[in-house]
């Protein structure tokens, strides 16, 4: 019996395998040379396969690799690539200390997608609007990659090449994301603007500030959906670093970020709107991060 009761099906033949180790997964990727894809939550990949925006003859499931789901606090924060968005949002290691990451995970689509989706999938899908990425950039995340020929760590801001494209080799997979340790004077925030609560971002911003007394010792300003990849604003960071926050300084940093980004006009927003909104979100995120860092109210 062949009845098509619905239209979004996976029409091609698919093989499915569940390797028992990361090495085995890499060997499978190499063996299927370009025809295999790693399947984590499936919320991006299966949609792309259904819409024929991606192709695969073989899917490599991550289910038998529990080590990839682990979240640990050794020397910072280490997220296994298959840690679900919901598990990160609820992790005691993340709460408070990595506030921007927690907020990014809470702003992530719907409950079902948070339950299924993984941080590694969100990163490797390489969407310019990926919710977790600005937050990960704010904490200097390094991507731990493993391939047939060994391991390497790539700073997250060097991982993305363009929309949907990363520097990963065909036989490589993302194993973990290592975030820098935070100190008592660290505060962070993530803000996202979408049309409705579960929507993809029109603009997103993550800010991390390290406070030393009345000054910003170090900082990160990262933005999503405003360039071909998620980006850091070096200019905004330069404006803030070493300074005591004031209303004027916050405005300067926001202007610097808005000038530096390269937003496009698409179905979700115009470039002009994105540029304006990015500036507003940067200001709000700086103020929030500073308050969380224990700083005095910015006037």
């Amino acid at each position: 019996m062949l009845t098509f009761t619905n239209s979004h099906l996976l029409l091609g033949e698919l093989d499915y395998v569940e390797p028992a180790s990361v090495d085995e997964a890499c060997a499978l990727l190499a063996e299927h040379a370009g025809e295999a894809r790693l399947l984590a939550g499936g919320t991006d990949l299966l949609v792309q396969l259904k819409l024929e925006r991606a192709e695969a003859r073989c899917l490599i499931g991550m289910r038998r690799l529990p080590e990839l789901r682990r979240i640990t606090g050794e020397d910072g924060l280490v997220l296994g690539a298959a840690a679900t968005i919901r598990s990160i949002a609820r992790s005691a290691l993340v709460r408070g200390r990595y506030a921007a990451l927690q907020e990014a995970c809470e702003a992530f689509s719907t409950l079902q997608v948070m339950v299924m989706g993984t941080v590694g999938g969100n990163v490797c899908n390489a969407s310019p609007a990926a919710d977790t990425v600005p937050a990960l950039l704010a904490f200097d995340a390094r991507a731990g990659l493993r391939g047939r020929h060994g391991e390497r760590a790539v700073p997250l801001d060097e991982l993305f090449v363009g929309p949907g494209r990363t520097v990963l080799h065909a036989d490589e997979m993302l194993e973990s994301l290592r975030l820098a340790p935070v100190s008592a004077g660290t505060g962070s925030a993530f803000l996202k603007l979408g049309r409705v609560a579960a929507d993809i971002a029109k603009v997103s911003v993550a800010v991390r500030l390290d406070r030393e007394g009345e000054h910003i010792r170090d900082c990160r300003v990262a933005l999503g959906a405003v360039a071909p990849t998620p980006v850091r604003s070096g200019e905004a960071e330069r404006a803030l670093r070493g300074q005591a926050p004031s209303a004027a300084l916050v405005q300067d940093a926001a202007r610097a970020a808005a000038d530096e980004i390269r937003p496009i006009t698409d179905v979700r927003s115009t470039a002009a709107y994105r540029r304006h909104a990015a500036g507003v979100l940067v200001q709000d995120a700086i103020r929030r991060a500073w308050a969380r860092a224990g700083g005095r109210e910015i006037r």
Binding site: Y16, G42, T43, L59, G61, V115, M116
Partner: peptide, 13 residues
């Protein structure tokens, strides 16, 4: 126990 989208879940998985 987890709420999951069955349209994006492979039966084999």
């Amino acid at each position: 126990g987890e709420p999951v989208l069955s349209c994006l879940t492979l039966a084999v998985a």
